[in-house]
């Protein structure tokens, strides 16, 4: 490969959205590291991930859903339902190990329920998952009402709270494995290509012989399953469950995915972009926490970022006009 080709490719990489995100990550890490010497310790980094681990795990599968041209607003409610169902089953005397399996099954059912109305009935996923956002949350509240359920077995809590391999807790390992799987499936398999293809144009994909319904159903079921897994991890990390577990998480999750360059119209985005976006959001939250900025305001700052991220093509246009000519607008 020639020198120029390599340099050109490097420049193209940096000019892409992922390249820009990478720059932001480096900048944020540098700022945080300057602000406090404890930032770059392994323990702090692990804590950083651990605090948002459920959200970032679901962000991986949400990447598939949105690239597929759909949206799943119900993920946080599935997380809540999974956590509460686990607590309830355990309270009814079911062994925790069996309860974990049953709850994962519930996650699959939730995903299949969404998939049925989107694929078989043909309703917009925005409406279906808005309704199930309310309904699944309602089921969680029916199960635990206004109580909290705790007292889970030691092995369960230990998995959520203590390091499993070296300094890494189980949830972080789960995240690493799922990230690798997500990257491989979306970027390297025929199924992944179909997810993009359907997101770009459902009609063209259908006429080209892609089984659109099956791919969409698979993506929704995966979304339900992963959300239920995240709910279980939450229950293990916190050690107790309540009806409002993971309430409102869907906004953070969708923000992470869109900030990572996934288009809300489908067909565009990468797992790499989502991973970089996760790093940005975690570092930003850490930095803001250091600067004594509270949770609600942090979410507001993320909101501003979200708007800026969808305005990128517009901003590029301004820059091109301002500096006369220059790079063509995407």
């Amino acid at each position: 490969m020639s020198e120029r080709g390599l340099a050109g490719r490097l420049r193209a990489q940096l000019a892409s959205w992922e390249g820009f995100l990478l720059l932001v990550v480096v900048l944020l890490v540098a700022l945080n590291a300057v602000a406090t010497p404890y930032f770059l310790t392994v323990q702090n980094q692990i804590n950083l991930f651990q605090l948002s681990i459920e959200k970032i795990i679901v962000a991986l599968v949400m990447t598939f859903v949105i690239i597929n041209g759909e949206i799943d607003l119900s993920v946080a409610s599935v997380m809540g339902l999974a956590a509460c169902a686990f607590g309830w089953l355990f309270q009814q005397g079911m062994p925790a190990g069996l309860a974990v399996a049953v709850v994962l099954g519930i996650g699959i059912l939730c995903g299949a329920f969404n998939a049925f109305f989107v694929v078989a009935v043909g309703l917009p996923s925005l409406v279906v998952t808005l309704a199930t956002l309310i309904a699944f949350r309602g089921m969680a509240r029916i199960l635990v009402e206004d109580r909290g359920i705790g007292g889970f077995p030691d092995w369960f809590n230990r998995l959520g709270q203590q390091p499993l391999v070296g300094p890494f807790p189980m949830a972080l390992l789960v995240f690493a494995v799922l990230a690798a799987v997500a990257f491989f499936v979306l970027q390297r398999t025929a199924f992944g290509r179909r997810v993009y293809f359907i997101g770009l144009s459902r009609e063209v994909a259908a006429f080209s012989g892609v089984d659109v319904g099956r791919v969409k159903a698979a993506v929704f079921v995966a979304s339900g399953l992963v959300a239920a897994l995240a709910g279980l991890l939450y229950a293990a990390r916190v050690g107790s469950v309540r009806g409002d577990v993971a309430l409102g998480f869907e906004l953070d999750i969708i923000t992470i995915v869109l900030l990572g360059g996934v288009s809300i119209f489908g067909g565009v985005g990468t797992v790499t972009g989502t991973l970089l976006s996760i790093l940005i959001v975690l570092n930003l939250r850490n930095g803001m926490a250091l600067a004594n900025i509270t949770g609600h305001i942090q979410t507001g700052v993320l909101g501003v970022l979200l708007i800026l991220s969808v305005m990128v093509p517009t901003i590029r246009g301004w820059a091109a006009r301002l500096f006369g000519g220059g790079e063509a607008v995407r």
Binding site: F117, V127, V128, L130, A131, T132, L133, I134, A135, F136, R137, G138, M139, R141, I142, E145, D146, G243
Partner: peptide
């Protein structure tokens, strides 16, 4: 119980 409200509301919308 009153805790059924949300579940019913969601299913009603659907």
């Amino acid at each position: 119980s009153e805790f059924w409200r949300e579940a019913v509301l969601g299913l009603l919308i659907l």
